[in-house]
Amino acid sequence: MSEPLLQLEGVHTHIGQYHILHGVDLLVPKGGITVLLGRNGAGKTTTLRTIMGLWHASRGTVRFAGEDITQSSTPDIACAGLAYVPESMGIFSDLTVRENLYLAARSVKKVGEMDEARLEWIFGFFGALKKFWNQPAGTLSGGQKQMVAIARAIVEPRRLLLIDEPTKGLAPAIIQGMIAAFRELKQTETILLVEQNFSFVCALGDSVAVMDGGRIVHSGAMAALADDRDLQHKLLGLSLDAHQ
């Protein structure tokens, strides 16, 4: 495994009186897609939010490219090169698609100064965005909103994308397109992907970590987990047949 880009060591997170993460140890290598799997309530979203500094770890360390970012503020973490696509997508529905991407492009001072080549690269993945460029993002469909959310994360080069359940609530046809887009994205980007759609991540993941009860209970190659139905059943309580 190459040098980890992101490393979590014994991370505990409390939300109010609730103890959600109980010592998460996670390595995300540079390049490719690392998948974070787990049942509902396992702590996947909390892990991503802790990495982004939206909730701070009460114990343990989060290192990004060797730097300790455990107690850094969210804007500092974002400026260090992490981009976050929350489960709710977090799009600004009153703003147009163009304005959503413009805000994500921190280095751009005027809306007309966005990198055209980069935008064309994004339109290559998400063609619909070009069509709806000047539409308020709130008027788009769920799939299109997800495209806006992911496009916002890649509108400028970032070192790590944290993406939380991008297929949630999407139609199967859109998910197939999303798989193709992620397959191309992972050639250039490092992605930590939280998902519950097992067949989606089987098609994309390079490495995998499985969470349960606020801990990582398994980590290894995605292909190995995809091939081992007993392990899937043990870790995730699922039969892959039901997802195919």
Binding site: Q135, I174, G177
Partner: peptide
């Protein structure tokens, strides 16, 4: 390059901006 808009033609209708 595969695009999602190609894979999901049902998404292609331009929503009208309601003022």
């Amino acid at each position: 390059m595969t695009t999602i808009s190609q894979a999901a033609p049902q998404d292609s209708a331009i929503p009208k901006v309601r003022v």
